[in-house]
């Protein structure tokens, strides 16, 4: 168990390093973007005089390293600062949206993970059967449609007929059941998007093991195929499966801007794209850090879990 704790500590330290690199990369990239907050805010209406006035007002005239330093020292003290565009504290702006993003990710994961595990195990069990082929082809077709298009089709089928709303309007005092109902379509869209990857990995990881001598042994002992897959293959295949689940969870948190746009869901992705367009660097940075932390933590969790599920890895380290 100690080994695991050491690993967690190491990985967390590396995670902080990752966050630092991310913040530098994002800051650099937004600096390289043509234009700045002042010109983005004024848009077509910008004139040299108003631009200069707005730049001074927003404090954009400092050199880039100074601005990065100011930002970084603020963050280290737990202060994400104020959005320059709206002059609202960033922490306030983000908290509600972060909650929304996580809610949707968990909702989609709660459908997608069990579904893909079951489908993956069944596909491995009945490999090369008609079921396997259909599940595989169906899943592949689902991921080969762009997300917004999947969303449009679902809206056409399920929303125009009046089953589910096509707009997600959240109010703070909403019942959980109402919330689950209004966010069903985005969650279903995301489920369709991530299921294929997890299902295929589950199937592949199990099939990969079926040629191993110990499975051969179990088979010779006359165990039922289901038992072989569930009791012998699946536990050993968990590591890659957990990894792919982690990657997909990270995607559900960080990569769903398109679905947010279609369903008008107030999540972080939309805010980040908006803020990039407006060059509101402090907001972009804050969201990038949240996304990067989610990614780092999920990967860490996956690694810890796969180590725990594999006694050999435990002993070796």
């Amino acid at each position: 168990m100690n080994a695991v704790l050491v690993m967690i500590a190491q990985r967390l330290a590396l995670g902080v390093l990752t966050l630092f690199v991310v913040s530098v990369v994002i800051f650099g990239a937004t600096e390289l973007l043509p234009g700045d907050l002042a010109s983005a805010l004024l848009g077509q209406a910008a004139t040299p005089e108003t631009l200069a006035a707005l730049r001074t007002q927003l404090g954009l005239n400092d050199p880039a390293p100074v601005r990065y330093w100011n930002w970084a020292t603020g963050v280290l003290q737990g202060d994400f600062g104020v959005s320059l565009a709206t002059r609202r504290p960033i922490a306030d702006m983000l908290s509600a949206r972060l909650g929304n993003t996580i809610f949707l990710a968990l909702y989609a994961a709660a459908i997608a993970v069990p579904l893909s595990l079951v489908l993956g195990v069944l596909a491995a069990l009945w490999r090369n059967s008609l079921f396997d082929r259909v599940a595989n082809a169906g899943a592949l077709s689902a991921i080969s449609f762009p997300e917004f298009f999947v969303a449009y089709i679902l809206i056409f089928l399920l929303s125009q007929s009046g089953f589910f709303p096509s707009l997600v309007r959240l109010t703070p005092d909403m019942e959980l059941s109402d919330k689950l109902y209004v966010t069903f379509l985005p969650a279903l869209t995301l489920t369709l998007v991530v299921t294929a990857h997890m299902m295929r990995m589950t199937r592949a990881a199990i099939i990969n093991l079926l040629a191993s001598p110990y499975i051969e042994m179990a088979r010779l002992k006359g165990l039922s195929p289901l038992r072989i897959v569930l009791r012998h293959a699946l536990p050993n295949a968990l590591a890659p499966i957990i990894n792919v689940i982690a990657i997909n969870l990270a995607y559900l948190i960080t990569g769903v801007v398109v679905v947010e746009v279609v369903f008008v869901y107030p999540g972080l992705g939309q805010l980040m794209v908006d803020s990039v367009a407006k060059r509101d660097i402090a907001v972009v940075q804050a969201i990038a850090l949240i996304f990067a932390s989610a990614y780092v933590l999920l990967n860490l969790t996956a690694d810890v879990l796969s180590t725990l599920t594999n006694p050999r890895l435990m002993r070796r380290k």
Binding site: L14, T18, L19, V22, V25, G255, V257, G269, M272, A292
Partner: peptide, 8 residues
């Protein structure tokens, strides 16, 4: 790792 932590 850092690049992957940024949504693609």
């Amino acid at each position: 790792d850092a690049l992957m932590a940024i949504p693609s």
